[in-house]
């Protein structure tokens, strides 16, 4: 069907209104759960599951926010999540920066085979490895420490994805820059450190964001490895707000969830242009 003969149904203003209307309708399922979560964190427990559901309450209370801190070492858990995600991100930047560069630029025997071996790390579901890994970390005396969360994220799937992204970026980087540097007497490490890494900033920030999020959202692993509340990470802590009989303290959970989501959203709102642009220049582009 050719559309070029069909008259334009509406003018620019109408088009614009239609676009906004479409976006708002589409956005509803993305936004409403989060808004409901925030709104419900200010409700008394008995109103959260009132039916029909409502957004607002007549008796708003911020008590749940205080409870979140009183009930668990929530500030500590917040710190745990932040520091683990930062450490993981730093390791991944270094490891994937090196590996991605080598896979893209250095010729060595077995390069393609080794790249495929590394890529397997992206494909193995955590369900396959979680029991054996638990055994290994147990033998190493690292159960109920943060090591498993740091090491597995920093070297397995999220890091492999990062290596893949970095390789794609370095493949697209003009080789002339390096040749000039080599003439100036720089070795491989020097070239990588002085020339390529600074140029790779967009790809590195994309990797940083994706890695930070995967560490930040990790759920299965902390649940398996950590048992002391002061070591918990946030996603795990969120499910631990229960009363003595196992009943969920919904409003406290929702308040805690709100506190974990809002800062990240604010950061994304501020940084999203850069985020998209980093990705655009990261070699993932068309």
């Amino acid at each position: 069907m050719r559309t070029e003969t069909a008259p334009r149904p509406f003018g620019p203003l109408a088009r614009r209104i239609a676009l906004y209307a479409a976006l708002i309708v589409l956005a509803a399922p993305f936004v409403i759960p989060t808004l409901w979560m925030v709104a419900s964190s200010f409700k008394p427990l008995s109103e959260i599951f009132a039916s029909p559901p409502s957004f607002f309450t007549d008796s708003p209370t911020a008590a749940a926010y205080g409870e979140a801190f009183a009930f668990q070492p929530f500030a500590r858990q917040y710190f745990n999540s932040v520091y683990i995600a930062l450490v993981v991100t730093l390791i991944v930047l270094l490891v994937s920066g090196l590996a991605g560069y080598a896979f893209a630029r250095i010729r060595f025997p077995g390069r393609n085979l080794l790249f495929v071996v590394v890529l397997i790390g992206l494909l193995v579901p955590s369900e396959v490895t979680i029991v054996p890994l638990f055994q290994m970390f147990k033998q190493a005396g690292m159960v109920n420490t943060h090591w498993p969360l740091i090491l597995v994220t920093a070297f397995a799937a999220p890091c492999v994805l990062a290596t893949f992204i970095m390789r794609q970026f370095f493949i697209a980087l003009p080789v002339e820059l390096e040749e000039a540097a080599r003439l100036d007497g720089l070795g491989r490490f020097g070239i990588w450190r002085r020339i390529c890494l600074p140029l790779a900033r967009p790809a590195l920030s994309a990797v940083a964001i994706l890695t930070f999020l995967s560490s930040w959202n990790l759920y299965l692993e902390p649940t398996v490895y950590l048992t002391s509340p002061e070591l918990f990470t946030l996603p795990q802590a969120l499910t631990r707000f229960t009363d003595p009989y196992g009943g969920e303290m919904w409003n406290t959970q929702l308040a805690a969830a709100t506190m974990t989501v809002v800062p990240v959203l604010v950061v994304f709102l501020i940084a999203q242009r850069q985020f998209v642009e980093s990705l655009a220049h990261s070699g993932l582009k068309g």
Binding site: V224, T227, S228, T239, T242
Partner: peptide, 21 residues
């Protein structure tokens, strides 16, 4: 006294037993 969440209590406990922990 180590508090495990009620919902995952059995799973966590058996994982610990299986892990020799």
């Amino acid at each position: 006294f180590e508090s495990l969440p009620f919902e995952e209590y059995n799973t966590t406990l058996t994982t610990q037993i299986a892990g020799g922990n």
